[in-house]
Amino acid sequence: MSQLVIQDLHVSIGDKPVVKSVSLTIKQGEVHAVMGPNGTGKSTLAKAIAGHPDYTITQGDVLLDGRSLLAMEPDERARAGLFLAFQYPSEIPGVSIANFIRAALQARLGESAELDATGYYKKLYEKMDLLKIDRKFTSRSVNDGFSGGEKKRCEILQLAMLDPKFALMDETDSGLDIDALRVVADGVNKLRTGQLGILLITHYQRLLNYIVPDFVHVMHEGHIVRSGDKSLALELEAKGYAWLKKELVHA
């Protein structure tokens, strides 16, 4: 069984430590939600695991099926089975979604093999049907002029097509109204087939009403301060982050 192991991870942006000793193990098929107030290191954790060049890992390790990711370039990590769904996905003018995903799949085959175009489009249309995405969508340029909801749908379609072992979903709910949120959550739920492990980063409990996590972790000032099941998220919702801060001071 695949697993993603985060071991005593410390991450800095410039000289500033942001993530301080986070350890977490995600197994295939599990959904782990990481919650916490803004600026507490949740997104930094996701981006550092994916290999963003602005983030320095100062201590610890991240292992995918026992293999350290840290020496790998971001694209090698992706090809090893990691996927980062962005909070703010980049726009790529002039490159259609269909061509972009095709290039990403081709990159996994290397130069010797050519991706089978017929098979590719068959799979693409299957996934689009599954996620209830209109056929016209994939001829548009990647994220170019997209609404918040369209950007997130584009991320979910890529996730479906690239078949990673683990997906890091960074604030997938941000900027979405309730209808868009439901559509995106439905998409993620359809991809929960027992194969995919998910690290779901969110500020709000509301996303967890739609994507029900197996585990909930609360981050505060760079640490995971609480872990539990989905009831922890509800407790947090009821009492607010202020409650947590108070508890931590008294602890």
Binding site: E73, D75, A78, R79, F86, P89, I92, V95, A107
Partner: peptide, 21 residues
């Protein structure tokens, strides 16, 4: 970085950006 996180190498990512342009 966005394109690399999808599995494209840095060169492939730049090439795709230029071709898109």
């Amino acid at each position: 970085f966005y394109m690399q996180s999808r599995g494209l190498t840095e060169a492939q990512a730049m090439s795709l950006a230029v071709n898109g342009f």
